[in-house]
Design a protein around this nucleic acid. Sequence first.
DNA 1: CGTGCGCTTGATAATGGTCAAGACGCGTGG
DNA 2: CCACGCGTCTTGACCATTATCAAGCGCACG
Lengths: 254, 254
Amino acid sequence: MTIPIEELSQPETPRQCTHDFRVNCSNCRLSSLCLPLALESDDIDKLDNIVQRGKPLQKGEHVYQAGGPFSAVYAVRSGAIKAYRVTDDGREQVTGFYFPGEILGMDGIAKNSHACSARALETSAVCEIPFSSLAELSARMPNLQRHFFQLMSREITEDQQLITLLSKNTAEERIAALMLSISARNARRKLSSTRFRLPMSRIDIGNYLGLTVETVSRVFSRLQKLDVLEVSNKEITINDTRGLQDIANVIIEA
Amino acid sequence: MTIPIEELSQPETPRQCTHDFRVNCSNCRLSSLCLPLALESDDIDKLDNIVQRGKPLQKGEHVYQAGGPFSAVYAVRSGAIKAYRVTDDGREQVTGFYFPGEILGMDGIAKNSHACSARALETSAVCEIPFSSLAELSARMPNLQRHFFQLMSREITEDQQLITLLSKNTAEERIAALMLSISARNARRKLSSTRFRLPMSRIDIGNYLGLTVETVSRVFSRLQKLDVLEVSNKEITINDTRGLQDIANVIIEA
DNA sequence: CGTGCGCTTGATAATGGTCAAGACGCGTGG
DNA sequence: CCACGCGTCTTGACCATTATCAAGCGCACG
């Protein structure tokens, strides 16, 4: 209970400045979540050779922009990224949040130009994986090909879950489901599933879930009053996971 | 104006019973929309060899069922298919409608089992494309690999468009957008973009768009009163495409 | 010819949006 | 270090869109 939250929620960006080390796919602690999964050590090295690791992105900087040429997909190494599209009438629609170990940018493959934009919610590091090299490599490595197909398919099923959420669930259920999703994804990274800091604003949450900021705020207050959640600005503590699941009315998987 | 609607909307299932002919990918009139796109004639034959063409599905029959083993993706040859998932509390969420030339089933790749179910909205024919063969083939045919990646990516961007629609648009806008989407997809198949028969019920439309049947019905009535649409049961005539676009407030692409 | 499902329309209710005001927090600059 | 100011968050009052409930119509199919 007295463990500092930073230790719980962000050990992948310790103070000693990870990006000074020569990171590569073999020694990356996220490899079990990311593309290298299911690859032999030799093959990991080949994948590693095509991966570009740039300098960290500051909060607000873009990973890529809608309409820009598509050349790569990106793996989040640290921080958090939001993907969003701008509607025809100029409003923003957040289409996803991406955490370390997750891959984004696959929307650009269809038209060879990005369908949405992606920007850092906080200081973040991403690995750039040139798509042409990845395609070439996966033609020669069946496991990689299969895994990449699976990643895209997962993006599809996750989008469909969001569609269902937006179409069928109340404000309470949506927020509860998002909290459980973040919790589960934290657990996958061996972080606390009950205590974490939200990297995104209430505005982004509302935007993602099809709600206004006011509603998001009210729902957080109500959930707090029900004692399932403790909310202190962006710090979230889940007091009653089971209760939250009951409210979400949806089964969340990592 | 006096052309019978059947001729306009369903020439791909003429009375002389298409499925008696030995159809193959080279002579399929949908090849320019479907997987063979961008393949050389030799390669089309190789693709053709792995494609299974079963007997037509009757209305209501399943192409595949959620939870069932994933072994293939499917190309619609005639008719119309709806994909849907059943939520944890037993309600149904329609996630997509698929028309001739379109590919479905890619949701199953992620977990090697289908995440949603798909059933025929009317008598339909589908081509079954075993996924293992397709993966193998695409490792040897870069164009096929690229094209399949593009198809999956397109599924992602379309789902994201639906997310935006559900999250940001009114009932009127959603219905208008769906009508325009069906119209555009008809145009791609060289069918009338202004007169067609909806293969799905009002219930399915509402379910897909996150609305109740009553709201769907009311919106159709209002659009009719505004003279942008004529609705007679499932027959739709678009009288004012531009007006419909203005109402949709969204740019629709085939 | 009857029954039932799908569709339409009306009346009412509720969820969430809009508008408004105030509190809190954070970064900047004095 | 503190004060200021802006942006984010919270809370309240009111309103609108869409859901819910209810009833009736009509076509399709047995």
